[in-house]
Design a protein around this nucleic acid. Structure first.
Lengths: 243, 243
DNA sequence: CGATCTTTTGACCCTTGTCAAAAGTTGTGG
DNA sequence: CCACAACTTTTGACAAGGGTCAAAAGATCG
C-alpha cells in the first residue's frame, strides 16, 4: 500500500534532511498507509480531534480558521513535505482546519503510535519539535505582516514567501510557479478584501514586480518585492526534517 | 542557587501538570540557575541564537518582532510559566525578541543540555512539543483576530485572552488584573494605531464592558466581551505542562 | 450553451490612521 | 518638596487606505 519510505520521492529532494537507516526503519513502521484527497475535501477540522496525522506527498491545500460569522483566516498554504495534524496529535483537537485545494496524496500515521516516537526515536521527536517551532515562527511573521504592513507590502511579502518556499521544493520553473488558489484565498491570508487584493495585484503587475494570471504566478523582480515588503533574506533554511 | 524545583512556587498552581518523581529529578538537574531581569531589558533577541532557555518564574514581558523601519508587532504577553527560547533551542536563532516589562525572575536551562531531554526524558520532550504546538495555535488565533476582526472586536478579543490566561494563573483578584503595559503595546499586538486603540478602549469603558485604568484592567462583563469578539469559550485547557 | 464561479472595474464612503497638542503621570535632582 | 524633563494618555481635526456594493467581463464545466 503506497510508497515505501525508502523510495519516498520527497526524500530525494535535497531540501529534506537525510534519515539514518535506523530512522528510516522506524518511519516505515510508523507509516500506516496513504490516502488521496479530492479538491475541496477537508483533511482536518478545526475543533475536532483526529486519529491520524499526515505528511503531504503531493498536491496543495490550505490551513484556515473560520470565525462564527463566516469570515475566514487562511494561516498558510499547504505544500508537499508539510506535516499535518500535530495539534490534534499532542492535544485534544485542531486549532484550524486543513483542506485540499488540488488533489492531494497524503502519507498517513496513527496518532496512537505518536507517543512511541518520543519514547523510542528521540531524534525524530526532536524533528517534530523543530517542525512545530518553525511553524510557530512562520505564524509570527505572518502576524507581523498582517498587523503592520500596508496592502501592497503584504501582498509582496506573501508572494515572496510562497515563491521561495516553492522554489526550495523544486516546484518552480524559472520564475514561474503553478499556484492553484483563488484571489479570495490570498485575500483571506493577508486580511484584505477580495476587491482590494485584486487591485493591488494589478499594481504589482503594472510595476513589473509579479503577475499572477491564470494560476501561473510569475515573479519578475524578486529583489524589488523583497525591498517593497522589507523582508530580510531570512535565515535561509538549508535543510528541514521530513516526517 | 535559586529555588529547588521541588519547591517551585509555580508547580503549586493547579494549572500546571504534576511531574513524576523521575521528571522532577531530571528537571532539578536540567535547571542551571536563575536570573533577574529589569524592566525594559532584553531577554532574547530576534535573529540571534541563545545558549540558554528560560522558564518565567515571576513578572511579565513581551514577545515581539520588529520591522526594519521601526514598526513592531507584539506576538504575545509573557506571563509566569511561559517557556522562552524554544526557537533558538531547536533552531539557529530566534524569530522574535523577548523583553521584560516588569522585573522578572527566570529559571535558566542550558541549550547544550536540551537534546538530552529528548534522549532521556521522552515525557518531557513530549511536553516541549505540546508547548510549541500550543503556541502555534495561539498565534493562529491572533492572526485570525488581526486579519479578520474590527478594531473593537480585536480589543475585546485581546482583553478576554489576557484576562482568562491571567485568571488561570491566579493573577487576578475578582474581576481585576494588574496589567503593566502601555496602550502602545496593546496597539502593536492588535495591529491598530495608538490613537485608535485609545479611543476604542474608551468605547469599551462607556459600554461597561471593561476598563483599563492605571495599569489595572477591570473586566465588567466578560460574556459581553466574548460575544462582541465572537470567542467560543475555547477548549479550556485544564492543565498544561511546566518546564 | 447555459449555469456557476472567478476576476476585474467603477463609485462611494466608512473605519482607521496621521498629525498636533493638551492633560495627566512618573521620576529625578537640586 | 518643588521644578522640570520625559513619558503616557486623551482629544480633536482631518485625511486616506482599504472596505462594500454592484455589475460587467472572463473562465470553467457539465
Amino acid at each position: 500500500m503506497g510508497i515505501d519510505c525508502v523510495n519516498c520521492p520527497l526524500r530525494a529532494n535535497s531540501l529534506f534532511q537525510d534519515m539514518s537507516p535506523n530512522e528510516l526503519e522506524f518511519m516505515r513502521d510508523f507509516k500506516s498507509g496513504e490516502i488521496e484527497v479530492e479538491p475541496g475535501e477537508p483533511i482536518l477540522v478545526e475543533g475536532q480531534g483526529s486519529p491520524r496525522l499526515f505528511t503531504v506527498l503531493d498536491g496543495m491545500g490550505l490551513r484556515f480558521k473560520a470565525l462564527e460569522d463566516g469570515r475566514r483566516q487562511v494561516l498558510n498554504f499547504v505544500m508537499p513535505g508539510d506535516f499535518l495534524g500535530l495539534q490534534a496529535g499532542v492535544g485534544k483537537e485542531m486549532g484550524h482546519s486543513v483542506e485540499a485545494t488540488t488533489r492531494m496524496r497524503l502519507c498517513v500515521f496513527q496518532r496512537a503510535d505518536f507517543f512511541s516516537l518520543f519514547s523510542i526515536q528521540p531524534s525524530r521527536a526532536y524533528d517534530v519539535t523543530w517542525i512545530a517551532a518553525t511553524e510557530e515562527r512562520f505564524l509570527g511573521e505572518a502576524l507581523a505582516s498582517v498587523g503592520q504592513r500596508s496592502a501592497i507590502e503584504r501582498i509582496a511579502w506573501g508572494l515572496v514567501q510562497i515563491f521561495e518556499r516553492a522554489r526550495l521544493l523544486g516546484m518552480t520553473e524559472g520564475n514561474t510557479l503553478f499556484f492553484p488558489y483563488r484571489q479570495q484565498d490570498l485575500a483571506d491570508t493577508l486580511g484584505l478584501s477580495l476587491v482590494h487584493t485584486n487591485k493591488t495585484l494589478a499594481k504589482l503587475r503594472e510595476r513589473q514586480l509579479a503577475a499572477w494570471i491564470d494560476r501561473q504566478l510569475t515573479i519578475h523582480d524578486i529583489e524589488g518585492l523583497r525591498k517593497l515588503a522589507m523582508v530580510g533574506r531570512g535565515p535561509l533554511l538549508r535543510e528541514r526534517p521530513l516526517m
